[in-house]
């Protein structure tokens, strides 16, 4: 066993697998397939976005103008940092530094929290102006000439809402994995949960990488 902290509960692989390596490969394939379904689910929204963006360019231009791209850029930076710290968290587990992993995961969690706080600021700004999705859309001050201007905010809230939900789920998973890392459950022999949560978190970041230019920058 390498010098790192000896994991308190020695992980023994499930009875229907031949070895821990076998179990790890199966889990990785399983997680990647799950990520594929996540891509397809978010993708449905992207497809609808591109189709309606081509159909009502002025609605999307007017809508994008009301968004604060600086907050979007800041969120992107935050998520990139959180991806980096997540990757470092996994790295520390792989090299038997369970305690260090906890710090990295904690930073990732905080970044996620920061992302949600900025999101909350943006949402309250939108609600303040009355830019709500669908039939709740009643702009106080701004006037729009397009009849279905609410379509843009329907997209905005559906996409960022679904993404935000996944950020929250991700944060929950990171917290659970961070606690286990602190308890020393992970070692170079067994770190599947961290790797899994890490992959999920990177996917959430991947989706935001596309969401940012789509909503904030592209007029």
């Amino acid at each position: 066993m390498s010098t790192g902290s000896v994991s308190s509960t020695e992980h023994h692989h499930a009875h229907h697998f031949n070895s821990a390596e076998h179990e790890f490969d199966a889990s990785m394939l399983g997680i990647w397939l799950f990520l594929c379904t996540e891509i397809l689910m978010f993708g449905g929204l992207f497809v609808a976005f591109f189709i309606y963006h081509a159909k009502y360019p002025e609605v999307f231009a007017a809508g994008a103008a009301t968004l604060d791209w600086k907050l979007g850029a800041l969120n992107t930076i935050i998520l990139l940092i959180s991806s980096y710290t997540m990757a470092m968290g996994i790295h520390s587990c792989q090299t038997n530094k369970g305690k260090k992993a906890f710090n990295y995961l904690a930073v990732t969690f905080v970044c996620g929290l920061g992302f949600m706080v900025i999101k909350a600021i943006e949402y309250s700004g939108k609600i303040g102006h009355g830019f709500l999705p669908g039939k709740f859309f009643h702009p106080h001050d701004a006037t729009f000439e397009a009849a279905n201007q609410a379509l843009y905010y329907s997209f905005y809230f559906m996409m960022t809402g679904l993404h935000g939900l996944h950020v929250i789920i991700g944060m929950g998973l990171i917290a659970w994995v961070a606690i286990r890392a602190k308890r020393g459950d992970f070692s170079s022999k067994f770190y599947t949960p961290v790797e899994g949560v890490g992959l999920f978190w990177h996917l959430v970041d991947l989706v935001w990488i596309y969401l940012f230019p789509l909503l904030y920058l592209v007029g």
């Binding site: 990520l35 379904t37 397809l40 991806s83 990757a87």
Partner: peptide
């Protein structure tokens, strides 16, 4: 996205099948 997938998610060093999963999702979209 390719940087994040290749390095952060480690696709570069993992089985081809994992890349196929990712790419097939995007392809059908």
């Amino acid at each position: 996205a390719t940087f994040v997938a290749a390095i952060f998610m480690g696709l570069k060093y993992q089985k081809k099948l994992h890349t196929v999963c990712l790419v097939s999702g995007v392809f059908f979209l």
